[in-house]
Design a binder for these strands. Structure first.
Lengths: 147, 147
DNA sequence: TTAATTGCAAAGGTTTTGCCGCCGC
DNA sequence: GCGGCGGCAAAACCTTTGCAATTAA
């Protein structure tokens, strides 16, 4: 278990301005060592094997903290609550990371020619391009320093 | 309010095998007449102006029903609960619509050259290509008829 | 020492479920 | 008339929050 596996987890946390605790180390390592994109609950179950006293609330707080400092990313969901669209034809979306406004991007040729790399056995039903960023209103506020 | 606005909502519902009720008409029209990608709560508030007796539960049930028969799409979230990733470098994902497995698609050139159409004022921080479909396991089950 | 972090439990918010009366077909 | 649907309320979740005790720096 030594050698190349011995990533400097402590250093990584410190580099992101985070205090180092056993809980944080365990949570980050659990996420780092899987490619499963786990949920908070899954990480909690994993970490609990080594630290049975950890609480689910701490896992949530910690993941949120990690995400805020850019140590990890939240893959899904893009919005807090479910959002619906009467347009069923495949098209693309731009989502504001701040106000969660969703804007259609109707250019149908966008994404043409994009396909999974050879060898992937995933059966694709549809693909869409997702833009994340600031809507015009939130971008203006951001630039002017308004929170 | 007559004329081109007079889309045959009743026919659309029937074509999808749905019974026609005033609630369903109101919900579908509310969604059809906006580009805001509203939440269930937002639709509820909208429909309530005309049908104050409608319940939020009905809105949820109805939207779920609409989605199941392909009348509308659920834009977000892709997964029921939040999912995290230790990989922060921008990359792409394939999400299984059935078991919600998330698979990385690391091809970094994928999506190169994709940009918002001219004239969009959205400030893009990142873009990702999202593949939705069946993972190998669920695809095998689907083909063999196992539910 | 001091501010941040943890665990616990309660609260908050979203979505689902159960049940019964009602309505579309 | 029958099966599906709507309203209501409770329940089930997921996630956040408040607080006292503990810990990192």
């Amino acid at each position: 278990m030594e050698g190349p596996n011995e990533k400097d987890f402590i250093g990584v946390l410190r580099d992101h301005g985070l205090q180092v605790t056993y809980q944080r180390l365990a949570i980050y390592q659990a996420l780092y060592n899987t490619q499963q994109h786990p949920s908070a609950e899954t990480i909690y179950q994993q970490v609990r094997k080594r630290f049975p006293m950890i609480s689910l609330g701490t896992v949530y707080k910690t993941l949120e903290r990690f995400h805020n400092v850019g140590l990890i990313q939240k893959v899904s969901p893009m919005t807090d609550v479910s959002r619906y669209d009467a347009v069923v034809e495949p098209h693309h979306h731009a989502v504001c990371v701040k106000c969660q406004m969703i804007q259609d991007v109707m250019d149908p040729s966008l994404g043409d020619g994009i396909a999974l790399p050879e060898g992937e056995s995933f059966h694709v039903l549809r693909k869409q391009v997702l833009f994340q960023g600031y809507c015009p209103e939130c971008y203006a506020k951001e630039k002017s320093g308004t929170p």
